[in-house]
Amino acid sequence: MDESNKISLFQGKKGNLIKISSISLEGVMRRRLLDLGFVPGAIVEVIKKSPLGDPIAFRVSQTTIALRKEESMKIEGELVNHE
């Protein structure tokens, strides 16, 4: 995998598509994220930041989910180019 393409969801810019490769979270939060579709291999779109910069809304498995910085920093993936 091209290392330069690897970013966390938190680093994504609006409109970026990121293919999840790893989730470095444990416990209930990890299970909750999995349930919502943040599974390895899923493609996540960065939608927008809240007015105060945190949380950030993401589009995953056809729904919009907001995550805080603490969590979105720990979800990594590969930047997928726009078609």
């Binding site: 949380p55 919009t64 989910i65 907001a66 969590e71």
Partner: peptide
């Protein structure tokens, strides 16, 4: 006390 945060924007 454990905490987790996700918020759906329907």
């Amino acid at each position: 006390v454990p905490t987790h945060y996700t918020l759906e924007l329907p």
